[in-house]
């Protein structure tokens, strides 16, 4: 009945919980192996998959924040972090500003960056290929209480609705002369005139929503059933257990490593 919304690529066909396990596995591996080459490999692999799944455009936003974070992390830690050993020579000096970058600070930044950046790429991929309603259903089928999975699914419908309200109200206020581009004070003053109507409207709708949910049996004592039919394949099983092994393995590795 539901027409194919997306092209069924391998990642998209996986059961949603499997992708959660994979996220756990990769996160543990990157954090606990703490190895710059491993992190680099994960990052390159993720970028290749992102290109393959045609998410490059959406990834641009994430990549910009990765770059900004990198610049700030390396710049500030490299020059100012007290870990730096200022008696040695700096690793390099930025020409015009005469900023001195020291080895310890840069290594410090690299450690943290090497943890965060690959995860940002890998997890972006895994979560973009997940449909949030499917994930909510996966949660319920996996044992999480119905109310929680409902709230999860409903959150992803509520956010765009409020976003639409926000845009409408911002346009309406601008048409009434609200200044959203002037100096800092003016922009600060513009915040409440947009925020308050959005919030007030949404609160006023709450009672109607509660009544509607009640009449649709939200609190009925029947065992709630699931409408969407999500298949679980062998690939899901393999990936799930590999991820669990990877997580445990990386934690054990870290523990052993800390003894030597």
């Amino acid at each position: 009945m539901i027409q194919e919304r997306y092209k069924p690529t391998f990642l998209r066909k996986l059961y949603p919980n499997t992708k959660l396990w994979m996220s756990l596995g990769i996160s543990c591996a990157v954090i606990f192996f703490n190895n710059i080459w491993f992190s680099l490999a994960v990052m390159i692999l993720s970028l290749i998959m992102i290109a393959y799944e045609k998410y490059i455009l959406e990834f641009k936003v994430v990549s910009i924040s990765i770059i900004i974070m990198a610049v700030m992390m390396f710049a500030i830690n490299g020059t100012l972090n007290p870990v730096n050993n200022y008696t040695n020579d700096p690793v390099f000096i930025l020409p015009l500003l005469n900023w001195k970058f020291y080895k310890e600070g840069l290594e410090y930044a690299l450690t943290y960056f090497g943890r965060i950046a690959p995860l940002m790429c890998a997890l972006f991929l895994l979560f973009r290929t997940m449909n949030m309603t499917d994930l909510g259903i996966g949660m319920y089928e996996g044992g999480i209480p119905y109310n929680i999975s409902f709230m999860f699914i409903s959150t992803f419908q509520t956010i765009p609705i409020l976003g639409k309200d926000m845009n409408q109200i911002m346009d309406a206020q601008r048409a009434r002369g609200l200044d959203t581009e002037g100096n800092l004070i003016k922009r600060f003053k513009a915040f409440l005139p947009v925020m308050v109507p959005v919030v007030a409207n949404s609160i006023m709708r709450v009672r109607n929503q509660a009544v509607a949910l009640e009449t649709k049996g939200f609190n009925s004592s029947a065992k709630k059933t699931v409408y969407r039919d999500l298949p679980k394949t062998k690939a899901d099983h393999i990936l799930k257990w590999s991820s669990i092994l990877l997580s445990i393995g990386s934690i054990v590795y870290r523990i052993i490593q800390s003894f030597f």
Partner: peptide, 23 residues
């Protein structure tokens, strides 16, 4: 304000799921 689901199909199914109807 009565809708909470992603698609029309899910929305029509919602009340039925709450009352435990079979698929």
């Amino acid at each position: 304000s009565q809708f909470t689901q992603e698609t029309v199909e899910d929305e029509i199914a919602f009340a039925m799921c709450n009352f435990g109807y079979s698929r």
